[in-house]
């Protein structure tokens, strides 16, 4: 469904991604984990078309989208949940959602989709008339996810959904992601919270300083020594 092939991205002369190859199949939840500055956000932005890919290609649904502007990619079925739950602060919750429904053809269609996301996120229904900037962190993250669902995307790109949220709220968000997974959504998740990411993912990539260093199914990833010790903080035993 999505194939990121040997993608290179530079910020000025500094390489942020140095030949990254990532694949997502239909119905799969794939997690890209890694530290701050590893290039996780850059990878998502490269897929969405928000940064310039110098070398390599991004193929979505069999179509090379490397040169397309972000809105064309959204129209092809890429959903984007930006880092730091960036909403449209001066639009209401419902307006944020409606903006997300760029490919809905009629008012009825928009209403139908609103009902769907409200039943998934009942809290948003309560807050529908409020300006988005008045939401709590968890609510804002839910709105960001719900907004991406409004376009019925084929693949959802999530950038650090746990960022800056209290642990209990993080649990809540990941329960929702799990729910989306059960509904059959394909998700590419980029996370620093490795423990949480491994709970929902089918496959895991480890990104370090702009390169994929490990690619494993989730069960194997949980037992991989580097991931266990460095990222999950399992106790090391020195002999």
């Amino acid at each position: 469904m999505l194939a990121v092939n040997d993608v290179h991205v530079y910020y000025g002369t500094i390489a942020a991604l140095r030949g990254v190859t990532v694949k997502v199949d239909e119905g799969e939840v794939v997690a890209v984990i890694g530290r701050n500055g590893a290039g996780k956000t850059t990878l998502i932005k490269a897929i969405m078309g928000l940064v310039n890919v110098v070398k390599g290609s991004v193929v979505f649904d069999g179509e090379d989208i490397t040169g397309l502007p972000p809105w064309e990619r959204a129209k092809l079925g890429l959903g984007y949940v930006p880092e730091g739950r960036r909403l449209f602060p001066y639009l209401t919750v419902e307006e944020n959602l409606i903006v997300g429904a760029h490919n809905a053809r009629s008012r009825e269609e928009i209403k139908k989709r609103l009902e769907e996301v409200y039943s998934l996120f009942p809290r948003l229904r309560e807050r529908r008339g409020q300006l988005a900037r008045t939401l709590s962190g968890g609510e804002a993250q839910m709105l960001a996810i719900a907004r991406s669902l409004m376009a019925r995307p084929k693949l959802i790109l999530m950038d650090e959904p746990s960022q800056g949220l209290a642990p209990i709220v993080v649990d809540e968000i990941f329960n929702k992601i799990m729910e989306l997974k059960r509904e059959g959504h394909s998700i590419l998740l980029v996370e620093q919270n490795v423990k949480k990411a491994l709970e929902v993912a089918d496959r895991v990539y480890l990104l370090e300083t702009g390169k994929i260093v490990i690619e494993l199914p989730v069960e194997e990833a949980k037992n991989h020594p580097v991931i266990r010790e460095v990222y999950l903080g399992a106790k090391q035993r020195y002999k």
């Binding site: 928000l50 502007p69 972000p70 809105w71 984007y80 930006p82 449209f88 001066y90 997300g100």
Partner: peptide
């Protein structure tokens, strides 16, 4: 929709374009 798109553009251009708004 036009009004919503304008406000989305004002509030966050990068997000606006990635939710499918042709900002040009």
């Amino acid at each position: 929709w036009l009004g919503l798109a304008f406000e989305a553009l004002r509030d966050n251009e990068e997000v606006a374009e990635s939710v499918g708004i042709d900002v040009r």
